[in-house]
């Protein structure tokens, strides 16, 4: 371990992890409510980013073809609205007809959806990566000076450099996650969703409109995905690849446990952290393993705790 690099990598890792946590939350939401692992979530994230890019009229280098460019904030609202409609449409037209079919078939449908979303996006916006009309300059940084102790540097170059955009995305992601969890925990709609997630037939028997709850889950997943997409795009621009970037949320979920929001958030932070921390290693092979490090970690965690760190344990009375 190259200790002098650790503080810098630690901070960057945590900040990266925030967005992952938010994206992971969307997948957990769908899984909790309907037991469907949504492989299309990464593509919803990508679509969200493209939508904001489109509504905001693109960038000064490349216009999006939107006749009247909207201010960034309005573009975000417009994109979220579309994402909600897309979420509702997905539930209504692809998943509801599958009710009662084997779970595997439904999960495969989400794989198909992923392709559909990718194809549609390419068709509408082309394959070229775009710049993102980010309200924050991606080159501005926040520098934290760490003075050497007894003439001995504890941090490389005596300072930790944080990209301002990463700090902002982290804060936004955490706020969004907290709002969502409060909603789930304390509102009646949240109770409806929690009940449905436990037992569909039972939820039906107490008069909960289960299809409506599913629709709502997908709509919220659309919102979360779009916010995640915006945050990713602010850091790395808009492209089809965002869907793949969002795939890193999968290890985050498995790590935290498929059914736990808290676990998804923690999982996201850990994955972000691990992917950055390996870069502080002195061994070159480890240093270059940032992409696979989270998966190695999952293997270890799942061997010890098969339900993930915070997975729901089956309640069994003895």
């Amino acid at each position: 371990m190259n200790w002098i690099l650790v503080p810098q990598q630690f901070m960057t890792g945590i900040l990266n992890g925030g967005t992952l946590a938010l994206i992971a939350l969307g997948i957990v939401l769908i899984y909790k409510s309907s037991e469907v692992f949504n492989f299309a979530h990464g593509h919803m994230v990508m679509l969200g980013a493209f939508l904001v890019w489109f509504f905001a009229g693109g960038t000064s280098q490349e216009a999006s073809g939107m006749p009247f460019a909207l201010p960034f904030g309005v573009a975000v609202v417009a994109a979220i609205t579309v994402a909600v409609l897309v979420g509702l449409a997905i539930e209504r037209f692809t998943l509801r007809p599958m009710t009662g079919q084997p779970l595997l078939a439904i999960i495969l449908v989400t794989l198909g959806l992923a392709q559909l979303l990718e194809g549609t996006t390419t068709l509408l916006f082309g394959t070229q990566p775009k710049g993102f009309p980010s309200p924050i300059d991606s080159s501005s940084v926040i520098t934290i000076e760490v003075p050497p102790i007894n003439g001995q540097s504890i941090v490389f170059l005596d300072r930790i450099i944080l990209k301002q955009v990463l700090v902002v995305t982290f804060i936004v992601a955490i706020i969004a996650a907290v709002i969502f969890i409060l909603f789930f925990r304390f509102t009646r709609a949240g109770l409806r969703m929690r009940a449905t997630s436990e037992n569909h037939e039972l939820a039906r028997s107490v008069g909960i409109k289960v299809p409506r709850v599913f629709g709502m889950s997908w709509a919220i997943a659309g919102i979360i995905a779009t916010i995640g997409g915006i945050l990713l795009a602010m850091v790395s621009g808009v492209s089809i690849n965002l869907a793949t970037v969002a795939l890193v949320a999968f290890p985050a979920i498995l790590l935290g446990g498929l059914e736990s929001f808290g676990g998804a958030i923690l999982g996201g932070l850990i994955v972000g952290l691990v992917a950055e921390m390996v870069k502080a290693s002195t061994v070159i092979q480890v240093r270059n393993s940032a992409e696979i490090a989270p998966y190695v970690l999952i293997l270890i965690v799942l061997i010890i705790r098969p339900e993930g760190l915070f997975g729901r344990k089956r309640i069994e009375r003895v």
């Binding site: 109770l191 929690r194 009940a195 436990e198 039972l202 939820a203 909960i208 729901r312």
Partner: peptide, 12 residues
């Protein structure tokens, strides 16, 4: 709804 509290169960 096993993972909900008694009162949440009643509220559903």
């Amino acid at each position: 709804f096993e993972h909900l509290t008694v009162e949440d169960n009643l509220r559903t």
